[in-house]
């Protein structure tokens, strides 16, 4: 009996069909692919001055001729859901002190064309940019490696910062309440691209408002 039984034992196929397994895996992969964020957001560092009282002596004095003030403006519309959007971005600028006699306020645009912001800032910061571009060219050719390149760029920047006579633009960004947020970020970007180390964001003061009123034809915030 026992012998008979043994001989009857069937040989099982050890192969398993993997198709359902693959199906399931594919589904899971699809799920993970759709749910993940591969791209992480970037950040832009920003340092604002303290709003505490600073002694007059401690205030940093800047050369008038180096200062350029940009006024960013736009047009805000509010839709029925209360969503606010800023359109028609406009940029005005003046150099040095505000001209309270003729109320000059010039137009300028973003971009790389002649007389646009990039061009203007590049001209202003030529000395440093030329030096950095030289280093960049060397680095691209492989003459210097990453660490040397970075170190030299830092040296060049510090040299400019330490030299009192160096031509170094100081940018003051003054966005109005209606300015587009993206424009402010774009302006900060221009600072990075053009290697400008001294810039700050401020709100418009009385003189700026007067200039603005003369330029646009209505007071700040009025429409």
């Amino acid at each position: 009996m026992a012998k008979k039984n043994k001989s009857r034992q069937k040989k099982f196929d050890t192969r398993i069909d993997f198709t359902p397994m693959v199906d399931m895996n594919m589904l899971l992969i699809t799920f993970f692919m759709l749910c993940t964020t591969m791209l992480k957001s970037q950040t832009l560092d920003l340092v604002l001055p303290t709003n505490e009282k600073v002694d007059k002596e401690e205030e940093t004095k800047i050369k008038e001729s180096d200062a350029i003030t940009f006024i960013l403006d736009g047009n805000v519309t509010t839709d029925k859901n209360g969503q606010q959007t800023s359109t028609d971005s406009k940029i005005y600028f003046y150099e040095g002190q505000p001209d309270m006699e003729n109320f000059t306020l010039n137009d300028i645009k973003f971009g790389k064309e002649k007389d646009a912001i990039r061009d203007m800032l590049q001209k202003r910061n030529k000395e440093l940019l030329v030096e950095i571009n030289k280093l960049k060219a060397q680095w691209k050719k492989g003459e210097i490696n990453d660490s040397i390149y970075n170190a030299r760029v830092i040296v060049a920047r510090e040299k400019q910062a330490a030299d009192i006579n160096a031509k170094r633009p100081i940018i003051i960004i003054k966005p109005t309440a209606n300015a587009c947020y993206a424009d402010v970020v774009r302006m900060l970007d221009e600072m990075q691209i053009n290697e400008i180390s001294t810039y700050q964001i401020e709100s418009l003061n009385k003189q700026d408002s007067t200039l603005y009123e003369h330029k646009v034809g209505h007071a700040l915030g009025a429409k």
Partner: peptide, 13 residues
């Protein structure tokens, strides 16, 4: 700060 690109600056300010 995470804000919509087209929003007016006053919101961020």
């Amino acid at each position: 700060i995470k804000a919509e690109q087209n929003c007016p600056y006053s919101l961020v300010q």
